[in-house]
């Protein structure tokens, strides 16, 4: 629901990087978006061209890597990838004493710039 403000946050960070690294144009931006990051990839793709229209990200290719959810069992330390509608329980010992170790990411990985 807040993908447009996420797009603006991306622009702000990239523009700061543009000053730091001295570039004027981004050819490609690579984002990492976890399944539980609260961001809808399609909505982000939809608003990105319009949000970036007057910035150095204009015409940049938006590459998004989606990351699924993985939990780690706090009892036996097994890693369990979680698919949709699956309870957050360890696949090995069944414990529900777990923590999320992947799937909440929301990061700019890197930029290809001119």
């Amino acid at each position: 629901m807040h993908e447009l403000s996420i797009a603006y946050d991306v622009i702000e960070q990239v523009e700061a990087a543009a000053i730091r690294h001295g570039f004027k144009k981004v050819n490609q931006i690579h984002l990492l978006v976890g399944e539980w990051s609260g961001v809808d990839v399609e909505a982000l793709q939809f608003c990105f061209p319009e949000a970036t229209r007057k910035t150095c990200l204009k015409d940049a290719h938006l590459l998004i890597t989606c990351k699924g959810l993985t939990i780690q069992c706090l009892d036996c330390f097994e890693l369990t990838p979680i698919s949709r509608e699956q309870a957050l329980a360890c696949a090995k010992c069944g414990s529900v004493n777990t923590k999320i170790i992947e799937g909440k990411e929301l990061r700019i990985v890197d930029l290809d710039v001119d």
Binding site: I108, V109, D110, L111, D112
Partner: peptide, 11 residues
């Protein structure tokens, strides 16, 4: 053309 590693959270 060059690659710039970013890595920080968007928020």
């Amino acid at each position: 053309s060059r690659r710039i590693e970013m890595g920080q959270a968007i928020v």
